[in-house]
Amino acid sequence: MTSTIRRVLDAIYDSAAVLAAICLVLILIVIVLQMASRWTGISFPGSTAYAGYLMAASSFLAFAHALNRGAHIRVSLLLTALGGQRFWGELWGLLIGTAASTYLAWYAVKAVYWSYAFNDISQGQDATPIWIPQLPAAAGAVLLAVCFADNLLTLVLTRRDNIRSSAIDQTAE
């Protein structure tokens, strides 16, 4: 049962990261099209705005995956110094992390709602209703909050969280 939940959650974090990676490729494509449109004289209105939206989506959707891969950084001096008592340090960090990311997620979702309710429209040539590009960002923020809560719970239950530093490149000890 728990292992199923574990697998499902990890699959969600990783699929969001794949979506994020696709957004990064799309940024590249949009910018190339933007240059090409200028060279050829065909217009591509709103391209800069689309690139911006894709960047926001790319960053936010990858937040949770980056957390579990140890890509988000922190000052771990005190944690190391705690030695055998490290659990309490980790607990504190995850508590604050869960609170802060939940706060972020709440207001990210609220911003989407207000953008929709206000009919807030991009001021650029794209004239996109802003709630649309804000939606993936809010989803990523929610996912980050879920991921923090997930880690907090895992830590409390098993005394070990799911954050694994990717030791592939350049571990320096």
Partner: peptide, 10 residues
């Protein structure tokens, strides 16, 4: 920062 909260969230 000192207690190891992730920097962006700190």
């Amino acid at each position: 920062l000192g207690t190891g909260v992730w920097i962006g969230l700190a």
